[in-house]
């Protein structure tokens, strides 16, 4: 049951792109995801190992198609629900409009 994160020695990912721009985060939400994770682990809402486990349980196609902090966000949402901190129905639907009464976005164009 080895998962997709365990890539050491795998072939096929192509050459390394060594480009870097020196920025820590490429959007504000990435920084907030980073801070949320730090705060939740410090608060012992979950452990670093549980966080890694949550990322590693993403489906392989999802893992590979997601950016670094997108994986973190997925893991955070899952852990927040699992630990009873938020109700699953309260989370923003992926690709949809803000939750609330009334019709929701159809989720068209939900890219992975």
């Amino acid at each position: 049951m080895t998962r997709i994160h365990d890539v050491g020695g795998m072939e096929g990912f192509g050459p390394v792109d060594p480009t870097e721009d020196g920025r820590a985060f490429h959007a504000d939400w990435e920084a907030r995801v980073f801070a949320l994770n730090t705060a939740l682990i410090r608060r012992q809402a979950y452990t670093l190992d549980e966080f890694r486990d949550a990322i590693e349980h993403l489906a392989p196609e999802r893992y590979l198609a997601s950016s670094y902090y997108e994986r973190w966000l997925e893991a955070l949402e899952g852990l927040a629900v699992k630990k009873g901190l938020v109700a699953p129905g309260d989370l923003e639907e992926e690709g949809g409009d803000a939750p609330g009464p009334g019709p929701r976005g159809s989720g068209e164009g939900r890219g992975r």
Binding site: W29, L36, L73, E77, A80, L91, E92, A98, P99, G109
Partner: peptide
Amino acid sequence: EDGHPDSRLARRQRRLEELL
């Protein structure tokens, strides 16, 4: 908004932060 992945992700992050 939905056509831009960052704004989708930004909404999800914001919602999670609000709930927490």
